[in-house]
Amino acid sequence: MARTQAAPRTGAQRERDVLTRLSEDKDAWVATATRDGEPSLVPLSFLWWDDTLLLNTRRANPTARDLARGGRALISLGHTRDVVLLEATGEVLPEGGLPETVGEAFVAKAGWDPRGRELWAFLRLRPRSIRAWREVNEMDGRHLMRDGRWLV
């Protein structure tokens, strides 16, 4: 049976859908790489905060080490028929570098509290590029952000 393809979304609708995902989704796939190009891909809980993604992982995990060294990550939300890809720059926040209200919001969304655990670190990623599409008919116009600026 042939699948009926919905009409492509406008850029404005895609932006709204991306912002909804960033606000409502709890987890994302996060990819980083070592200097030698060794990849790491892990699922992490996140909070959309001040136009950035706030994530948490162990300080010794490749994601935190790679981000501290290289400052770049690729983040994926959704599934293969509703893709959101973000290229981001970021940092590992210093211990105590997270406002209390933001920490509380992360705990409420993620369902667990990593604060105060010395082996854990918060990561803050700022999107530089965002692409979103559902089907082939949305490949044109999939770039919603470039160089940290919304295009729509």
Rank of each mutant, 00 (worst) to 15 (best):
A12K: 12
P39Q: 01
R69K: 03
N56I: 01
T20L: 02
D27V: 14
R14D: 13
G37W: 08
R59I: 01
R69H: 00
D27K: 13
V30R: 02
G11E: 10
L19I: 07
F46C: 04
T10D: 10
A68M: 03
D66R: 15
W49S: 12
D17G: 03
R59S: 06
L22Q: 13
R58H: 06
D17W: 01
V30K: 01
T32C: 12
L54V: 04
F46I: 04
R35E: 14
L55Y: 05
T52M: 06
W29H: 02
L47E: 08
R21Q: 15
P62E: 15
L41M: 08
G11P: 04
R35I: 02
R16L: 07
W49Q: 13
S45H: 12
V42E: 09
W49D: 15
R16N: 04
D25R: 06
R21V: 10
N61Q: 13
D51P: 00
E24F: 00
R16W: 01
L44R: 06
D17H: 04
R69L: 08
K26Q: 05
A12Q: 15
R21H: 11
E24P: 00
T63L: 01
D36A: 11
N61M: 11
W29L: 07
E24T: 11
A64Y: 10
A28V: 11
A31C: 10
D36K: 02
F46M: 05
D17R: 07
D25F: 08
A64G: 08
R21T: 13
E24I: 01
R16A: 13
S23Q: 13
D50H: 07
W29R: 04
T34E: 09
R16V: 02
T63S: 08
R16Q: 15
L41K: 03
L47F: 07
T52G: 09
A60F: 10
E24G: 00
D50M: 03
D36S: 12
A31L: 04
L19V: 10
R69C: 01
T52Q: 11
K26G: 05
A28H: 06
S45M: 08
V42A: 12
T34P: 04
G70T: 12
R69Q: 07
W49N: 12
W29A: 10
